[in-house]
Amino acid sequence: MSQFDLKTEKVAVLMGGTSAEREVSLMSGSGVLQALQSLGVNAVSFDPAERNLLELKKEGFTRCFIALHGRFGEDGTVQGALELLGMPYTGPGVMASSLAIDKRMTKHIWRGDGLPTPAWRKVDSAEATRAAFAELGCPMIVKPAREGSSLGLTKVTAVAQCEAAFKLAADMHDEVLCEQFICGDEVTIAVLGSGAQARALPVIRIVAPEGNYDYRNKYFTHSTQYLVPCGLPAGEEAAIQQLALKAYRSLGCRGWARADVMIDAATRQPYLLELNTSPGMTSHSLVPMAAMAAGISYPELCLQVLQSASRDYAL
Rank of each mutant, 00 (worst) to 15 (best):
A196L: 13
S250R: 04
H108W: 14
S223N: 14
K155I: 06
G76A: 04
R268W: 07
S19H: 09
V123D: 03
Q307P: 09
A43T: 08
E147M: 10
T224V: 12
S285C: 08
G114C: 07
A165S: 10
V13F: 03
L6C: 05
P139F: 03
A49W: 09
V142H: 07
E179T: 07
A238N: 12
N217I: 06
D5I: 14
L315I: 12
G80V: 05
S297F: 13
L301V: 04
M292V: 11
I189G: 03
G80A: 08
G60W: 01
G16C: 06
A239E: 11
R146D: 15
V44L: 06
A12S: 13
A257V: 00
L286C: 10
L177W: 04
L251P: 02
F46C: 00
A265K: 15
P229Y: 08
Q161S: 10
T129K: 01
A145H: 10
E147P: 03
N276S: 01
K122F: 12
T18E: 14
K57S: 15
R51H: 08
L14Y: 06
T277G: 01
L301M: 04
Q241S: 12
M172Y: 11
S297P: 15
S250E: 07
S283C: 15
P270E: 02
A293T: 08
L26D: 02
E300N: 13
A35W: 02
G80P: 05
P299G: 10
G235I: 11
L56R: 00
A96L: 04
V159N: 14
M1I: 15
N52S: 13
G114V: 08
W120N: 01
E127G: 10
D5M: 09
F133M: 13
R254P: 14
L245F: 12
A145Y: 06
T8L: 12
L272A: 07
M27I: 12
S45F: 01
R51I: 09
V32D: 10
G17K: 03
A259K: 05
L99M: 04
K58S: 07
L286S: 00
E23S: 12
G195R: 10
G80K: 05
R146W: 13
D102Q: 03
V44D: 03
G148D: 04
P299L: 11
E236A: 10
S297L: 14
P233D: 13
L99F: 05
S2V: 11
I240V: 14
I109C: 09
S19L: 06
L168V: 04
T282G: 04
G255Y: 05
A208E: 03
I141M: 05
G60K: 09
L136M: 08
T18C: 09
A247V: 12
G93A: 07
A49R: 12
V228E: 13
M262K: 05
G184C: 09
F166D: 02
F46S: 02
A290M: 03
A145P: 01
D264M: 02
P88T: 02
L115Y: 00
A128Y: 13
V191G: 00
I182V: 10
L306D: 04
E274Q: 05
Q37Y: 05
A169H: 01
V207G: 15
A20Y: 13
T154Q: 01
Q241Y: 00
A49V: 05
L151M: 11
G93P: 00
K7F: 13
W120H: 03
L192V: 10
L192T: 09
S149G: 15
T90L: 02
Q307C: 12
F166G: 00
G295R: 11
H69C: 05
L54Q: 14
A247D: 06
E186Q: 13
Q269I: 06
G31E: 02
